[in-house]
Each structure stands twice: as C-alpha cells, then as structure tokens.
C-alpha cells in the first residue's frame, strides 16, 4: 500500500507537450480514476507512473520515494493492460506466477499465491488453460490475477475494460471495485468512459490536452464542475448548454425568454447556462419549449426540445403522450443551475 504524489509532471515529445505540468495527490488505499477524451495524456501519465515512459520534468513519488529514475520492476507496482498482455504460450497458472517465478520464489509460495488469487477471481478451474482458450472476461480476470499475485503496493489499470462488450463491462466494473474493497491497495485506473469513472472512483481526475481540468469526488464533479468541459464530460446524457446573457433579471436566452437565476453569478454579460437533462421537469410556470424528438426508454422519456432556437435535452420521469411540434413548459430543479464564462468556460457561480 502506498501513496502516490505527482508533482508538476511534464512529458514532451520534441516540441509537443503531451503532459503539461500535472499534479495529483493520491492517498494510501485510494481508487483514483484518470478520465478524459482520447489523446488527453491520461495513458501516458499512467505509463510514466509505471516507469514505461520517461519523465521530462517534475517528480513522481510512490510511497514517498522519488521514482523518476527507478526501473519499473523496483517500483513495486502491477499493471493491467488494455489488451490484457497475457503471455500466449503460458498457461493461466504460469501467467499468474510469472513474476514470482522470475524472482526464483519457492514453488510452494508461487502455488499458494496463485491459488489464492485464482480463488478471489473465480479462476481456479481455468488454471491449466492457455489464454486463447479463455473468453474476454476471463482473460481480463487473469490479467488482474497476475497483478494480485505480485501483491504490489500500487495497481495500475490502463483502460482494462474497453475490449469487453457492454454487459461484461458492467460486471467487471463491479468486480474491480469489489477487488479494491477486498485488497485495500491503492489503484490508479485510466478510462475514457465517464460512467466507469463515476461508478468506481473515490477520486476522479479529469484531463484534457495534457492538463488536469478538475480533481474531485465523483459527485462533487457532477454537482459543481469547475468548467464547461468537465460539466459536459461528466454525466450522461451530457449537460445542456444554452448561450445567452446574464442580466439582473435572470439568464436572457433571446426571443424574450428569461430563465430565472437562483444563484449569484460572478459577473454579468454573455455566458453559458448549463443544466443537466435529468434536472428539468414539467412545470406549468416554466419556460415554453417546442418538442423536436421524443424517445421513450420505458423508465423515463427523453425529449429533445427547442428553446429560443437552441436544442435542449430533457429526461422526464413521466410517460407523455406528446408528438414533435407539441409545446411543453419545463423548469430546472431549484438551485442546480451552472453558469460558465462564454469565452474561458470557467465556472461563474
């Protein structure tokens, strides 16, 4: 078990800065998810923590030891790769015991550790198979088993679920979370899937173009995103953004429509009003919108509506008998509006 400190870390390939001054504090036993769109540098950062990529600037500490120049095998970490990286010519047992075998650990010890890991992951009946004889989910479990056997102080996961189908992903997500609860080891997990981040993390690090946009607990990111990017990235369906102007009377959308503001904005003038689809409800006193598309999902009704020439998604709990062209009046829930600077995207309330 170990804490991890990332201090002003940089990675450059020639003139291009892939990682540009990233700082993250990870406490002992925490499950941290690095999330962001592809190309944001999250995998590179993970590989730098693993020691597979060199560090161009800054400092990485694992368990309070600076590891910038420590080779991967001395960092006491284990990593699970996106494509599993199982050794195809070894059985599951040999794959899992490989690291201990390399250290010339006694056979009995290897066997005991492999058996224990196999038991945790439900792999005991597959130990003598080769990777190609396993399904995607089983391979993923073997990759995790290989990590567990090493009993490292830090687990690294590089998009481990992205090769699995949607249903299996949900199952494995829960398994990894359960594994973390069982082992209590610090884990850093990279994904581009914000749902994975939200459901698994103790702490989420949202990255974009090599910089950290926001660090926080999943619900903090959901409730108070630091900027428009995080607001749009976290949550599904994505937050609605309406362009308009902050005036003393409220948020003016044009065409005479003004949304009342319940919070105080840092400034007036052009801005972006953000509201999550699930925070809109039918309200006779709300603003009028015109229905464009209706998508009933059973549990809820997704409505794409037009308000002052801008599209807005609503997730409504009611089953509605409405058709495109109908008019509704909707209002946002109290006190959960988000205001962002029209130029910088920074949060204004």
């Amino acid at each position: 078990m170990a804490s991890v400190e990332v201090r002003d870390v940089k990675k450059r390939f020639g003139a291009a800065a892939i990682i540009d001054g990233v700082s993250i504090d990870i406490t002992d036993g925490e499950f941290v998810v690095l999330v962001g769109p592809s190309g944001c540098g999250k995998s590179t950062l993970l590989r730098m923590i693993a020691g597979l990529e060199s560090i161009s600037g800054g400092e990485i500490r694992i368990a309070e030891r600076v590891v910038n120049d420590v080779p991967p095998k001395q960092r006491d970490i284990a990593m699970v790769f996106q494509n599993y990286a199982l050794y195809p010519h070894m059985t599951v047992r040999a794959n899992m015991g490989f690291s201990l075998d390399l250290q010339r650990a006694p056979k009995a010890k290897i066997e005991e550790r492999v058996d224990r890991a196999a038991q945790i992951l439900g792999l005991s009946h597959l130990l003598d198979r080769f990777p190609r004889q396993l399904s995607g989910g089983q391979r993923q479990r073997v990759a995790m088993g290989r990590a567990i056997v090493r009993d490292p102080q830090l687990f690294l996961f590089d998009e481990p679920l992205s090769n699995l189908d949607a249903k299996l992903r949900v199952t494995m997500r829960a398994e990894i979370k359960e594994l973390h609860q069982k082992l209590g080891t610090t884990m850093i997990y990279v994904t581009h899937d914000q749902i994975e981040a939200m459901t698994m993390a103790d702490k989420i690090v949202v990255m974009r173009e090599g910089v950290v946009e926001q660090i926080g607990a999943p619900l903090d990111l959901y409730d108070t995103p630091a900027n428009q990017f995080v607001a749009g990235f976290i949550g599904s369906p994505a937050m609605n953004f309406l362009e308009g102007t902050i005036t003393p009377a409220g948020f003016a959308l044009g065409q005479g429509i003004v949304l009342p503001l319940q919070t105080r904005a840092a400034k007036t003038g052009p801005a972006v009003y953000g509201v999550r689809p699930e925070h809109l409800r039918l309200d006779p006193k709300g603003v009028p919108v015109e229905v464009v598309v209706v998508e009933p999902t059973g549990a809820e009704t997704h409505v794409v509506a037009r308000i002052a020439g801008q599209d807005i998604n609503c997730v409504l709990r009611e089953r509605l008998a409405i058709a495109p062209g109908d008019r509704l009046t909707v209002a946002p829930d109290a006190g959960i509006e988000h205001l962002f600077d029209a130029v910088t995207g920074a949060r204004l309330n």
Binding site: A50, G51, L52, P71, P72, K73, I77, A78, M79, F81, Q82, N83, A85, Y87, F98, S99, L102, Q103, R146, R150
Partner: peptide
C-alpha cells in the same frame, strides 16, 4: 505490451528473450 508486462513483472533482457 508483452514486453512491457514482463518489464513490470521484473524480467531482465535475457529473461525476456528466454521466456
């Protein structure tokens, strides 16, 4: 990625070749 996994597993260059 196999070599990367082996690197983290602690394999030396010779062990990577052999194994």
């Amino acid at each position: 990625s196999l070599y990367e996994a082996a690197t983290i597993d602690g394999a030396s260059s010779w062990q990577m070749f052999r194994r």
